[in-house]
Simulated assay, not measured.
Amino acid sequence: MTLTRQYSEPSYAAPDTAYGWADLPGLIGLMTGAEKHGPAATSTLDALWVLYDRVLRVSPDRPDAPGRDRFLLSKGHGPMAYYAVLAAKGFIDPALLPGFGGFDSPLGHHPDRTLIPGVEIGSGSLGHGLPLGVGTALGLRAQGLTDPAVWVLIGDAELDEGSNHEALAYAGAAGLDRLHAVVIDNQSATHGWTGGIASRFAAAGWSTSTVDGRDHTALHRAFTQPHPGRPHVVVAVVEPKG
């Protein structure tokens, strides 16, 4: 008799945890020693929370499920908000947070995919996340996995790097409609773009939306905007870096 292994995807419903939006500042406050990257963390907090709370189909019960959505934090040089959200959603033990950046802590100043459940890439060096997102979307397509979405969160200053422009140009031409980018715009870019950040993506064939990066309703609406046949970017505008 031949036995067939049965496989089922985990539930992607938000886990029943004791932590919510109001708890995130306290969770971030447990992490010290990287205050110079505080603005990098706080600028991403709202977008990260809306993604993990209402959009991403990911589960701490099986963070490597083939059918999961992939979230790539390219803006990895200020990961405190990311770690706080992962802790709130059950991917890591909140007890790890006070050890952030310690010699024997898995929570480094840049995330490490080999140490932290749910982390898809090691990141922090500017300009790598979107190219990796393109490769991830292409890899999923090649495997016939057409349902998982790929999300990449980048900072506006990362768009000073040419690798990102090559990636966004290719993604638009290839019609990678499962690829999504979230650009946190806190006016850190050196050069900027006439017409705004979204105009650069639109010229390459992307669907675009520009919203208040602190407005959770607007973020959710932009994140779930239909974009058949095209990749999609959400530019989340927050207060300028002080």
Rank of each mutant, 00 (worst) to 15 (best):
Y12L: 03
Y12A: 04
A13N: 06
A14F: 08
A14K: 12
A14R: 15
P15Y: 14
P15H: 14
P15D: 09
D16N: 14
D16V: 12
D16Q: 15
D16H: 12
A18D: 14
Y19S: 08
Y19V: 03
Y19F: 15
Y19L: 08
G20M: 05
W21L: 07
W21P: 00
A22T: 10
D23I: 04
D23S: 13
D23P: 06
L24K: 01
P25M: 07
P25Q: 04
G26C: 10
G26Q: 10
L27W: 09
G29D: 15
G29K: 09
L30W: 09
L30F: 05
L30C: 11
L30S: 10
M31A: 06
T32V: 13
T32M: 11
G33H: 07
G33W: 01
G33I: 00
A34S: 13
A34H: 14
E35T: 07
K36G: 11
K36R: 15
K36S: 15
K36F: 11
H37M: 12
G38D: 14
P39I: 04
P39A: 08
A40M: 10
A41G: 13
A41P: 04
A41F: 02
A41L: 02
T42I: 13
T42E: 11
T42K: 07
S43K: 00
S43T: 05
S43M: 05
T44K: 06
T44E: 05
T44Y: 02
T44Q: 14
L45V: 06
L45Y: 00
L45E: 08
D46N: 11
D46C: 11
D46V: 09
D46P: 00
A47F: 02
A47I: 01
A47M: 03
A47R: 00
A47E: 00
L48N: 01
W49V: 02
W49C: 03
W49Q: 03
V50L: 01
L51E: 01
L51R: 00
Y52T: 01
Y52R: 03
Y52W: 13
D53W: 09
D53I: 00
D53A: 15
D53M: 02
R54Y: 07
V55Q: 02
V55M: 03
R57S: 10
S59W: 08
S59P: 07
P60G: 13
P60V: 09
P60R: 12
P63A: 15
P63R: 12
D64P: 07
D64I: 00
A65R: 02
A65P: 08
P66G: 10
P66N: 06
G67T: 01
G67R: 03
R70N: 11
R70A: 14
R70T: 13
R70V: 15
R70S: 15
F71N: 03
L72H: 04
L72A: 10
L73D: 05
H77P: 11
H77A: 07
H77Q: 13
H77L: 09
G78I: 00
P79N: 06
P79Y: 13
P79L: 08
P79C: 08
P79K: 09
M80S: 10
M80W: 04
A81C: 10
A81N: 05
